[in-house]
């Protein structure tokens, strides 16, 4: 219970870490998600579990996390500020920690208007910065937002955040990371990297500020499954940049799927060369079966063992 998460221990041992991502289903039958998790078992340290991503109702992140823990796998529980107020967020943090969740990824959440319950009431009681800081204060100061003390300490939770170098204003994005680090973020995962030049420019700023020494930065990588998928991300997903040259490269390939995997592998290889990048977060949503190959071809398999 008091041991640090495997992900945190990987970083502490100086290893380049790999995380995967699982999207819960619109059902209580978790067979598919368990199957995907099993496929990635030896290839990732931990699994992000999305929290009603794009505001679509799905099994809760914490519910899937319980399943992973039963399987001996390590979840990274995503917690957005969209659906829960501070009472529920703090309560869920404790509830998840009670059965062994160590990694929490605090994020704002896509606006509810995007989802399948577009008439919903968006909560946004806290923002992501405040949620990060709340988790840190619960762990380090033993205190809830309202000032009450926890009855027992909450040791060794590993606090994550997200960073998006592809959002605007660009010149503020490294400063925003600094703020998240000051709030308590220990690791960050970035938005999917397709425009690696822009990512490198952001990393330059990050290094100038010395942030790479204070927070573990995991580059987000998504394999492009089809031209349509790339086009969709380019036009319909906010905060993403998919360069046209990349789409043309996939389009011109003899085997587009293979090319998509190749691009992902190249991206990871390039990320490994960038000073301050401490790991990758592979988001192969609806293409989970490709994760082992991507990790392997990127030279990241076998995964190092940590105590």
């Amino acid at each position: 219970m008091n041991q640090k998460s495997k992900l945190e221990r990987m970083f502490e041992s100086g290893h380049f870490a790999v995380s995967g991502e699982l999207g819960p289903p619109k059902s209580a039958d978790l067979e598919t998600v368990r199957h995907h998790a099993e496929d990635m078992r030896d290839y990732v340290e931990a699994y992000n579990i999305t929290d009603n991503q794009t505001a679509i109702v799905r099994t809760s992140s914490i519910g899937v996390a319980a399943n992973l823990i039963q399987m001996g796998l390590e979840p990274i529980v995503q917690m957005t500020c969209r659906d829960r107020n501070r009472i529920c967020l703090q309560s869920d943090l404790l509830g998840a920690a009670s059965f062994g969740v160590k990694n929490f990824l605090c994020l704002q959440g896509d606006h509810g208007i995007f989802g399948n319950e577009s008439g919903t009431k968006n909560v946004f009681d806290l923002d992501s910065m405040q949620l990060i800081n709340c988790a840190k204060k619960m762990r380090d100061d033993n205190v809830f937002i309202g000032g009450d003390e926890l009855e027992h300490p909450l040791p060794n939770i590993f606090i994550g955040a997200v960073a998006n170098p592809f959002a605007d204003p660009f010149e503020y994005r490294a400063l925003r990371l600094a703020k998240k680090v000051a709030a308590g973020a220990q690791f960050v995962q970035t938005q999917c990297i397709f425009d690696i030049d822009r990512f490198e420019r952001w990393m330059e700023e990050v290094r100038k500020m010395g942030l790479h020494k204070k927070v573990k930065i995991m580059g987000g990588v998504t394999p492009i499954k089809s031209v349509g998928a790339a086009r969709y991300m380019q036009n319909n997903v906010s905060g993403m940049i998919v360069p046209e040259e990349l789409i043309q490269r996939i389009k011109g390939a003899e085997d587009r799927k293979k090319e998509g995997i190749k691009v992902a592998v190249e991206t990871i290889q390039r990320l490994r060369e960038i000073e301050g990048v401490a790991g990758v977060h592979v988001m192969a949503i609806a293409w989970e079966e490709m994760v082992p190959e991507i990790v392997d071809r990127s030279g990241l398999y076998p995964r190092p063992k940590v105590d």
């Binding site: 896509d110 968006n122 992501s128 910065m129 959002a167 204003p169 703020k179 905060g239």
Partner: peptide, 20 residues
Amino acid sequence: CSKSMLNGPCGGSQEGKCEI
């Protein structure tokens, strides 16, 4: 701010526009 954030822009801000 569509999300009533107090600590700066979320990752959905692009070219001055909100993600919604």
